[in-house]
Design a protein around this nucleic acid. Structure first.
Lengths: 345, 345
DNA sequence: TTTTTTTACGCAATCGTTCCCGATATCGAT
DNA sequence: ATCGATATCGGGAACGATTGCGTAAAAAAA
């Protein structure tokens, strides 16, 4: 006989029952600490269970109870400081409540996102935390899931039409403050390298940027607004956007970058092109990489409370999953961003 | 009736059977494309399944087949560039083969590691990829699991006594090359800020460091070897170690840092203390953060092929999980590191 | 036409748990 | 001593899918 055949946790509730001359129902009840089992048998069962190292079969439990105590998390890319921090927050709360977290990444591809979604939701997860991909334009599948009653929490990148809990950073204010800071520093030709136009975060940040300009009575120039449709996932994208800006008759004197990857991408671009920061061109952007302050020059950034956002998302999801009746009231938790002014502006 | 009660995937194989006047066995076989089902009924069933959006219940499948098609991944911290890149590699292969990835983090705590381990292995995962925590000293539970036949692959931080597949970076050579580089640059008083002494990677890196020194006939001074027992997870740890070194009568003229967090921690320390790099003190270390080249000064680092290590680990795990008989031959895949020389040395 | 083989499907057990019903046993109250 | 009320426990049917075995009908061979 091969070890493989013995399989893990070959020990079941039946083994305990047989060994103790009891029924499986009694054992099950004892393990769940039911009141209709005497204290003696209960301790007997518990002791024996511990002795033979009994572990409930989670698949059987899930099948019976119609809940798996595991959740799905879909982000665009795990190896992104913002998302990994969010996941950290999610996991820390989840594990504390006996939930397992299944992660998968969309890589900004709508197809991969859908695939993961279909696979995860084969009556497998009790809830979902998702930050939609830049490419996603068709939300039908998500809407269906939501309509069917799957608890969903959006984090960072949300879909307005779906009414559920949402956790976002204060993107508008973050962008507004950053732009205002640039203006205060005397910059007048401020360009924005934004994430994909369809993304909620991109819209909000763009709005904040425009608001600050308007308030300062600086005209908004459309050619100062460029987009990276994959959020800067590929450097070429950023390079392209920046090259466009540098070819303008009136070049910008400051750049506001709309995402983590875009921010560092811009930095890399300027280094490559030997553009002096901030003398030739100032730079500020959204970023959660904790090395930004050690950069040359130390980068001014808008930092999102990523860990806390993950915690909040998981907490809200727990509420939904554990509540008896479907919730009617949904909240959009807006967490404030932090403006860290350093030498790049 | 509340939506929640309808539950997801209320549609089962039984529904298809009933609707088409067939038995569940026929439907099941048709869906699995068995040869003993006629082509007509097969297409009929497939069509109807698609129409009512049938999704197999993965818990039921897992229960029946005694395998869940999901794996567990335990790392010390997700929000660490090295590990998040590893997970990226793991996930990319796993999802391609229909496996779900369950991650959990130990936060360098042996207790949390054990907790996660126990929970994940309740006949829930088919395999495990783990990078043990610094704190872990008792490997009994892991050994038990391994003895029971759970496919395990170690990545980065391995346990020598457990015979299974292992994926590591060439830590010895990486450390050796880095130290040798420092020597070539004329540094003579080279200190090492190492990770926890018990860790495999720490031992290997320390050995590489010593070898390079010996080869150059530079005496190995014990007070130039300091440890961070939590791998630099807390900055205070690094600060402490560095303060110790700076108080030495003969201060070091170069630092070799033994982990990602320690490397950036040292950098931060020197910035805080206004120590000039590399004039006052040179710095090189292991790191996978892709911002190191943009630092001030650009940091010389030893970079591990994190993504590829994740891919390799998952591939090896797939082999173990999918093979009929337990494997006897295990390989330790040693992936070569990359020495990136920049301005900090 | 009869017999044998093949094709195509149904029955029912099973995976490990949970839980709705009953069924005894025990005990205080009458 | 009898009766109803608890307290404890067992039987057995689920949950949804898979699969060995049995069996009609159809096709092939005799």
């Amino acid at each position: 006989m091969y070890l493989q055949d013995v399989k893990l946790s070959a020990v079941t509730i039946k083994d305990i029952a047989k060994a103790l001359g009891l029924s499986t129902s009694t054992v099950s009840r004892a393990l769940r600490d039911s009141h209709e089992i005497s204290t003696e048998t209960k301790t007997l069962i518990l002791a024996h269970a511990k002795k033979i190292n009994y572990k409930p079969n989670r698949n059987a439990q899930s099948l019976k109870e119609k809940r798996s105590h595991s959740i799905g998390v879909i982000v665009s890319e795990i190896a992104n400081s913002f998302f990994s921090q969010v996941i950290n927050g999610i996991e820390s709360i989840a594990s504390k409540h006996g939930y397992t977290v299944n992660i998968s990444q969309s890589m900004e591809s709508a197809d991969r996102e859908l695939m993961n979604l279909e696979y995860l939701t084969s009556s497998f997860i009790d809830g979902l935390i998702i930050s939609v991909s830049t490419e996603t334009k068709n939300h039908e599948y998500l809407k269906e899931l939501h309509a069917k009653g799957l608890p969903i929490v959006f984090v960072d990148r949300v879909i307005d039409e779906i009414e559920t809990h949402k956790v976002i950073a204060d993107n508008f204010k973050g962008a507004y403050k950053a732009t205002k800071h640039l203006i205060a520093k005397g910059y007048k030709k401020i360009a924005i390298v934004s994430n994909h136009e369809g993304l909620s975060i991109a819209k909000e940040r763009l709005a904040g940027y425009k608001e600050a300009l308007s308030e300062a009575k600086i005209p908004i120039r459309e050619n100062m607004i460029v987009f990276c449709d994959h959020g800067g996932m590929l450097y070429a994208e950023v390079e392209n956007a920046m090259n466009g800006l540098m070819k303008l008759r009136t070049k910008p004197d400051a750049i506001f970058a709309g995402s983590d990857k875009i921010t560092t991408g811009c930095m890399r671009f300027m280094k490559n092109k030997k553009i002096k920061i901030p003398e030739d061109l100032a730079l500020i952007g959204f970023s959660n990489n904790d090395l930004t302050e050690l950069l040359s020059p130390p980068l001014s950034v808008i930092k999102q409370p990523a860990f806390e956002m993950g915690e909040a998302a998981m907490t809200l999801l727990l509420n939904m999953m554990e509540s008896k009746r479907p919730q009617q009231q949904f909240e959009t938790r807006i967490q404030s961003t932090e403006l860290l002014i350093r030498k790049s502006t």
